[in-house]
Design a protein around this nucleic acid. Structure first.
Length: 474
RNA sequence: GGCGCCAUAGCCAAGGGGUAAGGCAGAGGUCUGCAAAACCUUCACCCCCGGUUCAAAUCCGGGUGGCGCCUCCA
């Protein structure tokens, strides 16, 4: 497959360091709150990349961290008069509630910063021994001027950073720093803060260092894919590269992959801007599957706007796929349909459409994870399959093959098109369906409509087809 | 100031030198007691101006408009 590499700013052929194996790392959440739609985008994007790589045969080792020690967590704990452990544990639990329902697979490794302290300290020691760091009263800093390649990912030059600093240049934060771009790897303890002992006294790790240490601990010195949101390119990933490559001497990652933002009215959704929507709250109105489908309906490197009407459009689109699978299975179950031989011409044409959809799907995903086109391939199969449902000469086997393929491709995107339990109809509902059938036979349409209302109140919808009533979960 | 991205129908969104995928919404029709779904039909010359070319929405140059990073941030 081809994947866009931020390092080269071009699409490159994906060739992992070790054949058949992929090592990928994605920057995970700082756990001090529920996550918003903008945070959900990389989760869904990289989960889909991981699923696709596994689908085409790779063995994927996937690592995603939890930042569970950070200024915001400390602040939150202070506000609530509790410990940082309590805060981070709570929001890790809540993270899983949302992530699981978004059908995000659990990573192979999910390290926490606070459980990686000794590796982080070792890492800093190495940098220190090699002369890349210096001490200031408040902590240990990385000297970016010691790294001749610094800036290669973001393509920022050190001089430009000084200019970009603008009005911040006069602020205290630069006091003592050798270069404006220098960043802290170990923060000395301030009164009342949680701390760990280290060769530099009590303190806690800086933000960037945890990822460098975790990657090496779980995946090794060099990995295949490193992912995250576009805003992490600088400074976070740039600094990770500087630390890791100065320490180990080898390239940290072969492919740098970054997703674009979720916007509201064309402006970046962010906590600081206050224009964010929690996934939890959106899920009160829309199914988590709709949220995932919405995220995947555009290319990951293009910004997407969020609004209710866009979610509604996504919901309707996803329903079209779901209904198709339901209709295919229902139609295939018909007795007359089962008698149709599967080697007739029209059945064969549907089988061909299935193959074409598979190929289009693979082509789309191979082209830099083009999930928008991959979804189009599914829609094209849906159209062909629905048309086949109206053609009595197409066999049950062919219809079921189409349904299976739609489910299979949907699963690669993690869409969970039809859950297992959605096929089982409760006895109570089935009895009502029988009663309604009887009422219809007697032309008692008033009663029939009342029963339909009852069924609907139980969460099921009834559709009268030429082959009898079809019941589906709403 | 530095670096970078984007501009395609009412909306969303792919594509990317040879004459515009798909979805949502809309209109008309078929089926149907009604409803729902489905099916059929219909719905764009791709921001503007130059240039290259037999041919440009696609390439190049210049505009205009929108956005992002350079500060915690997905």
């Amino acid at each position: 497959m081809k994947i866009y590499n931020t390092m080269s700013r071009t699409k490159e052929e994906f060739v992992p360091g070790e054949p058949g194996k992929v090592k990928m790392y994605v920057c995970g959440p700082t756990v001090y709150n529920y996550f918003h739609l903008g945070n959900a985008r990389p989760l869904v994007t990289f989960d889909s990349l991981r699923r696709y790589l596994e689908y085409i045969g790779y063995n994927v080792e996937f690592c995603q961290n939890f930042t569970d020690i950070d200024d915001r967590i400390i602040l939150r704990a202070a506000e609530e008069k509790t410990t940082i452990q309590e805060i981070s544990e709570r929001y890790i639990k809540e993270y899983y509630v949302d992530a699981d329902r978004l059908n995000v697979l659990r990573p192979t490794y999910e390290p926490k910063a606070t459980e990686t302290i000794s590796e982080i300290i070792d890492f800093i020691s190495e940098l220190s021994d090699k002369g890349y760091t210096y001490e200031l009263p408040d902590g240990i800093y990385f000297d970016v001027s010691k790294d001749p390649e610094y800036g290669k990912l973001s393509r920022f030059r050190l001089g430009d950073l000084v200019e970009g600093a603008g009005d911040r240049e006069n602020k205290k934060e630069f006091d003592g720093k050798r270069n404006p771009g220098d960043f802290v790897v170990w923060k000395r303890k301030k009164e009342g803060e949680p701390a760990w002992s280290s060769p530099w006294g009590e303190g806690r790790p800086g933000w960037h260092i945890e990822c460098s240490a975790m990657i090496r601990k779980h995946l090794g010195e060099s990995i295949d894919i490193h992912g995250g949101g576009q805003d992490l390119v600088f400074p976070h990933h740039e600094n990770e590269i500087a630390q890791s490559e100065c320490a180990t001497g080898s390239a940290l990652a072969k492919y740098w992959v970054h997703n674009a933002f979720v916007n509201v009215d064309d402006e970046k959704m962010s906590k600081s801007a206050g224009n964010f929507f929690m996934v939890r709250d959106i899920a009160a109105k829309f199914d988590y599957r709709v949220i995932r489908f919405f995220i995947l309906s555009g290319h990951y490197r293009m910004p997407i706007n969020f609004s209710d009407s866009l979610l509604e459009a996504a919901e309707n689109g996803l329903n079209r796929i779901r209904e198709s699978v339901q209709n295919l299975r229902f139609t295939a179950a018909g007795e007359e349909r089962k008698a149709v031989k599967n080697d007739n011409r029209n059945s064969w044409e549907l089988m061909e459409a299935i193959d074409i959809a598979s190929k289009e799907f693979l082509d789309a995903m191979d082209d830099d994870l083009n999930t928008a086109d991959a979804i189009t391939a599914i829609f094209r199969l849906v159209r062909a399959a629905n048309t086949s449902c109206t053609d009595p000469s197409v066999s049950s086997d062919a219809l079921l093959s189409a349904a299976d393929k739609i489910m299979e491709l949907g699963e690669v995107l993690g869409l969970d098109i039809l859950g297992e339990d959605e096929n089982r109809i409760p006895e109570e509902v089935l009895q009502l369906v029988q009663k309604r059938m009887a009422a219809k036979q007697e032309k008692n349409f008033k009663l029939a409509d009342e029963i339909r209302e009852q069924i609907s109140a139980l969460g099921y919808q009834i559709k009268d087809t030429s082959a009898g009533p079809q019941v589906v979960k709403l």
